[in-house]
């Protein structure tokens, strides 16, 4: 029964209003507009970086608000953090290995 009570507590924390979601949606749409607008400008090597930074900001908003990570327990955030960390590690290792092979 105690567990049930905890669950109820967690659930009440989960209750976002409609307004928060609509605000996040507006931010996501605006950021999409920014990505499209910025894509036309040539920053050289920074062009891809800009697009990826904006995509990451959008992802952060979706993860924290739409996917409720902000109101989940720390365990969930640690889970997602570790998963993303390992994805980034595999990216860096594979990519540095590949560019090393190409250069030699």
């Amino acid at each position: 029964m105690e567990n049930n009570h905890e669950e109820q507590l967690v659930h009440t924390e989960h209750k976002h209003g409609y307004g928060v979601y609509i605000l996040v949606w507006m931010a996501l749409m605006a950021l999409t507009g920014v990505t499209v607008a910025v894509a036309g400008i040539n920053f050289g090597g920074l062009t891809i970086a800009t697009a990826l930074v904006i995509a990451s900001i959008k992802t952060y908003l979706v993860l924290t608000i739409f996917m409720h990570l902000r109101s989940e327990s720390k365990t969930f955030r640690a889970f997602v953090g570790v998963a993303l960390l390992f994805l980034i590690i595999s990216f860096i290792l594979l990519f540095s290995d590949y560019s090393f092979i190409v250069r030699n």
Binding site: T32, A39, A51, L52, I54, A55, K58, T59, V62, L63
Partner: peptide, 8 residues
């Protein structure tokens, strides 16, 4: 989220 990256 996957589309957010595929798109750009």
């Amino acid at each position: 989220i996957i589309w957010i990256f595929l798109f750009p």
